[in-house]
Amino acid sequence: MTAALEYVRASRWYGQVIALNDVTTTVGPGVTGLLGPNGAGKSTFLKLAAGQLAPSQGEVRVLGKPAWGSPELFHRVGTCPEPDAFWENLTGQQFLMALLRLTGFEEAECVRRAQAALEQVALTEARDRKIGGYSKGMRQRIKMAQALAHDPDVLLLDEPLSGMDPVNRRRTVDLVKRLGREGKTVLVSSHILHEVEAMTRRVLLIHNGRILAEGDVREIRDLMDEHPHTVALRARDPRRLAQAVVGAPHVISLSFGAEGEWVTVQTARPDEFYAALPEAAVGSGVTEMYSPDENLESVFRYLVAR
């Protein structure tokens, strides 16, 4: 019996910089959150599992095989990379078809799987539009679709919710949870605790290239209550959004961004804020949302200092 992902004393450095430092851990079926601020080593952790980097020391194994130099693994591994990069001239459907052909499927099977994946991420209607014309959220979703289309057993998702609007964020969270329930091994990275918490209770906390802790997200969440949480929202009608959230008891402060489309909210109780957000977002046309890194950074500083 083998865990889907195994890191055995794995280290990775770039020149003098250590990105991952002597990590030993395993990841099994279900959803596991990889939580850490930017620069903590999350992407390196994922890229080692995705066979894009070789460990400088130690071993990284996926489904029992070394991740580096085993391309056959990608029949059973799907990756959703973090960069917002595409062949912009391809339509959503062409993009998926091209990658499914590269996964070895027959043409008819490629068509069937591409359609199913588009449906899963609610992009069926946009399938014949060029990706270059997609919104940020649609681009995130088509990236998810290519990771899912070949029905892999292991999914490596690097910041999959980044830039999504609240409705699609909810939809993607549900999708990830369903994949976990189906027995797939899903490793999802994020620097937003509440984002991870919405998908799973099992987390790996990574900081300065080391696994700080692993286990139940609630124990970390308790620490978060001491730190105000900041959320930036882009809306078609930012004033209406501000009106909808400003009176809520959990909102500490609110400010408008320089370009006028962004509203930055500081909240003392993120759970309540996120629960109330979809309703507030509907009328004001929220198109994008992200949480700056400082929230988690402060928690990590606290954890490291303990």
Binding site: M1, A3, A4, T25, G28, L63, G64, E72, H75, G215
Partner: peptide, 29 residues
Amino acid sequence: MSASAAARPPAPESTAGRDTSRPVPFPRA
């Protein structure tokens, strides 16, 4: 906190007519 190291049975080596135990044949890829 403890690590979750659940194990799972290996997936079938061949799905949808593909041999998943090796890379896609060179000419096809």
